[in-house]
Amino acid sequence: MELIGQMKLAEVGDELEVLSTDKGSADDIPEWINKVGHELLDSFEEDGVLHLVVKKTK
């Protein structure tokens, strides 16, 4: 939900990076991005923290 709120405020073309330690986010965020039609640019894990880089496409 944090991401969705920020995506609302962002401009088309902006890139946002989400950091999460919640295991569910690894499934739920890419699923949401796919459903809504934004673009997942990168996803990686670092020191147990998941990073997802998302581009607002519309």
Binding site: M1, I4, W32, K35, V36
Partner: peptide, 8 residues
Amino acid sequence: ASVGAVSG
């Protein structure tokens, strides 16, 4: 409600 709504 929230996941349904934010998924369009």
